[in-house]
Design a protein around this nucleic acid. Sequence first.
DNA 1: ACGACTGTTATTAC
DNA 2: CGTAATAACAGTCG
Length: 296
Amino acid sequence: MPELPEVECLVRHLNRHLPAEALRKISITSPRHLRREEGKPEKWGSDLRGCRLDRFSRRGKFWIMFWKPGSGRGNHPDPQPVVGHLGMTGRLFFHRERSGSPTDGAVFKHTAAIFDFGSSRLVFTDPRRFGMLTRNADVLKSLGPDPMDADWCSMTWPDRITGSSRAIKVTLMDQSAVAGLGNIYASEVLHQAMIHPAAACKNLTPDDWHRLHHCIPDVIQKAVGIGDSLSLDFSGLSSVDRLFYYGTREGSSDDGEVFRVYDREGEPCPRCGAPIQRMIQAQRSTFFCPACQPLP
DNA sequence: ACGACTGTTATTAC
DNA sequence: CGTAATAACAGTCG
Ligand SMILES: [Zn+2]
């Protein structure tokens, strides 16, 4: 589940393990992931070879790499961005060769791209192939405000959102409305804000919008804090996956983190005890408490 | 074995 | 324009 919190924790982790070496080679093993790219895949190698990976950043669910030219004073004086998205099942991790270790010379399944630094590789795997990779940073332009940005506080809900006939849960998952919320955290936010997921946006009160504005970063930042405190497996290779689904029961028993409503159909609401209900909205499961999330 | 279900989002149709 | 359905995939689980 790469929603905003997982991507944020991933980016923080990767920034702690940046390779000092320059890029030797890029292998684009899934051309499909470049479907939002304009240039040819071959150009990636010529433009980025010899560059150093300066840092990772994030916007919504997108992660962004910045590449600095190597000593050779290349054609690109400014850091070049490479933007990626993990889709549903994408993973991104550094793999270091260690002779004698079980993963020495490992070949990974479902790779989308591999960045080779010599003594380590940055591996992007994605079985379902919903993810993407591009040097076209314009893909970020359609994103709405990010709940972890400093300017979130000054954001006001635009008329096209407050006047919309869509259900609020569907709108919260619209990346042009809010960048970073996905199917899990949309349900979690609405439970905390005590708003029915099927409520039409245009029927929400100013106080509803105010609570949403407050609850979205609250839920997100708590999740980031928890994810950052765990020792996570970013590769998804171990049996217990500690990044994706770090909020569910597995791996949470001793960490105290659990989603309050997501995937909890029939269980008592942690706030009022009523059974959590499941419904389908926009072909996705929604979980909510019918007692403390009333329709307006 | 089979069908339900899964963390997303372009694209298409109205 | 805004809204909704669908397709693009491969895996897991009961
Ligand atoms: Zn409740």
